[in-house]
Design a protein around this nucleic acid. Structure first.
Lengths: 143, 143
DNA sequence: ATTCCTTTTGCAACCAAGTTGCAGGAAAAC
DNA sequence: GTTTTCCTGCAACTTGGTTGCAAAAGGAAT
């Protein structure tokens, strides 16, 4: 992806493009799946974890990324599409692999929403499928 | 609930009924919602957290309780019905209140399951609605 | 460029949840 | 009644997340 694309994405959400923010955004997009803060820390050893934390918080706040909880113990984050408003209707399904502990985005698959009983106010949904990704399923077959 | 009911539930899942296990099971059922380990620690100040941890792990292992991740940072646990096998088909929807941080079970509401792409093996689902419970919604109205 | 002010970053310390090793004590088996 | 196994508590530790503070970097006005 072009450098200007990252700049555009930041600008679109009103985030000032510092070198580190560009680096973190690029890393997240390159990994092409939902990544945790520890994932980023490992990948970006030169960047302090508090900086990563604050950058991720900023990105979340500006809806540049969305968080998903795949039950692995660490929250994971994925970059939103430019059109995303992070409302219930544009959330998609995620898949957590119990073999390799990676989280996949099924962007084409919207989350199903069920009716909450009278009186409950719905603001969001967390929908995560769990199981084995193709690679881990194949590996398990082989054993 | 009768003491014998708890004994029965433990026996059904092959768990030896010690005093502490009965106490923890009873506490979980009394609270009538999904509770976290810290919730139990607070409620059962005489019991060590490692004991609670190991008891909860044992209960999970024997399908006496199931875990849900409501995104609050702490896993929550709720007692299974006697018929529950903890398979995808008998999971129900949970609701996490962002006001009081409690997790509700909608036992009558089965989780919707979406199709995973070719190659992915589905083993479980985590489906949590988020928003405000009736009490917190009313309180927010009042302000 | 020099100054002044704001923003960003790194360091260190801290907190909460979960987890483990080990030893004492209770319960079951012999 | 002794041995063995299981259960529990204590303490220490790991991991993920978070905050306070000071140094560094960026920007605007002189």
């Amino acid at each position: 992806m072009e450098e200007s694309e990252y700049l555009h994405k930041l600008e679109l959400r009103g985030v000032k493009p510092t070198a580190i923010r560009l680096l973190i955004l690029r890393t997240m997009m390159d990994m092409n799946r939902a990544v945790s803060q520890p994932d980023l820390e490992e990948r970006l050893q030169t960047v302090d974890k508090s900086t990563i934390f604050r950058t991720v918080s900023l990105f979340l706040d500006r809806h540049l990324i969305h968080a998903i909880d795949d039950g692995s113990g660490a929250l994971k984050y994925a970059v939103c599409s430019d059109e995303c408003t992070c409302s219930v209707s544009d959330q998609h399904v995620h898949f957590y692999c119990e073999g390799c502990h990676r989280a996949f985005c099924f962007r084409q698959q919207a989350v199903p929403v069920v009716q909450a009983p009278e009186g409950f106010v719905l603001r969001g949904v967390n929908y995560v499928l769990k199981g084995l990704c193709p690679a881990c399923a194949a590996r398990e077959q082989g054993e």
